[in-house]
Nucleic acid binder design. Structure first.
Lengths: 225, 225
DNA sequence: AATTAGACTTTGATTAATCAAAGTTTATTT
DNA sequence: AAATAAACTTTGATTAATCAAAGTCTAATT
């Protein structure tokens, strides 16, 4: 039975491998995600390899095996279902749920998770707009388009918010940057690194590229479900 | 911040100290409850003392300090509220919830617990009939009367079932031995170590003293709420 | 080609929780 | 009072996860 630590490593490696084209994840990235020193990440990853959850090439990076991917997906499912429960059922604040789910995901059994999924009506997306893997380990592809990829005049719909910190989510909520919100790019200045957007029908907002990159969108008309 | 292990030790010491008149709990009892060797219990308890959660007298036993009692109560509250949630909301089976709650109780925060308590309507007793400590750490006194203390002809109402194992709970449910059920003692044989009881209006059952001791009751008419 | 910065790996130590087995105390029986 | 059993404590070892610091590689500059 994998420890909570192993579960965390596999979940983070999964998430990072999705965001990397090669599928390889570096030790530095792992150390950063898990808030450990690089030496710890190396040691841990070698342990994961010995157990058959990853393939590791020194100084190249690490890749999940089929069983590692399965476990990582299961953790992502737990995490996102729990976040949904915390918002929908217990009415917790958007900004609080990430850390809470981070703890609970290691303690909830498959059986309870299945009951929870049923109770919630088998949701497909969590409160941040991220897709929830099915119990089979499938996950709908997410858009790879952020606000940063949009040009002046384009309209788009927010799919998800890629920053789970309290701070950022508070900012996002205050400015109605929520999954489903309609956005229009009004102005763009690459040199000044700023972008003016219209949120909804009458609200305007200036954001920098770092923030724009965290708003994942699909262009209006596409991918409606 | 106390580890899950510390939380478990304090919770079990609390429960056992309630069941002992002196308030002292032996190393053997702790080792048995936590499924560790006596040596481990001794070592661990010395650590708990160093942190100020218990007072330990070698070969006498251990007693909770005020802060240890507080932490133990908080764990008991978590455990019993979670059990209630698992049965009431997620419709899990009576026999399954103990082990599930045992894991979740270490992962749930005070904030989420408070929301859960509110969502459940601030229940006072868990599905086994045990009282749920309040957030202040108060817990209604439970009856100290088991079926074993009743004599022929007496009637009583089941308050709680003091065995959390799947096996026993399956037996209890099958025979309608549930909190609230009305019991009448029909026959008693101390030598043969057996007791015949009427459960409800027409169902009869033979049980031994070990089982009778696990059925905590209050005599009919007393303590109605 | 030599230097250097940055990323990575190795090494040695630490902490928490545990066990097995040996040693000690206490209480009970003879 | 001696012997014994039962309960408890001590000791030495183990495992998982971690860090700091020293060492090694790789790739980019000079």
């Amino acid at each position: 039975m994998p420890s909570s630590t192993v579960e965390n490593y596999l979940k983070e490696i999964l998430v990072e491998s999705i965001h990397s084209e090669s599928g390889l994840v570096s030790m530095g990235k792992i150390a950063e995600c898990l808030q450990v020193t690089p030496g710890t990440a190396t040691t841990m990853v070698k342990g994961l390899e010995k157990k058959g959850w990853v393939n590791y090439r020194p100084r190249q990076g690490v890749k999940l095996t089929t069983s590692g991917r399965k476990l990582g997906m299961s953790m992502l499912r737990r995490h996102r279902l729990l976040e949904t429960f915390l918002v929908e059922t217990l009415d917790l604040d958007w900004g609080e749920i990430h850390d809470e789910a981070e703890e609970l995901e290691h303690a909830i059994s498959e059986k309870v998770l299945e009951k929870l999924d049923e109770f919630l009506g088998r949701p497909t997306h969590d409160p941040h707009g991220d897709p929830i893997p099915t119990s089979k380990g499938n996950m709908p592809e997410a858009s790879d388009l952020s606000l940063l990829d949009c040009t002046v005049g384009q309209t788009a719909k927010i799919e998800s918010i890629q920053d789970q910190s309290r701070e950022f989510l508070k900012f996002a909520r205050k400015n109605k940057l929520l999954p489903g919100s309609k956005i229009e790019v009004i102005q763009l200045d690459r040199i000044a690194d700023t972008m003016q957007i219209k949120v909804g029908l009458k609200s305007f907002l200036n954001i920098g590229s770092k923030t724009a990159e965290k708003i994942v969108v699909h262009r209006s008309g596409e991918m409606e479900q």
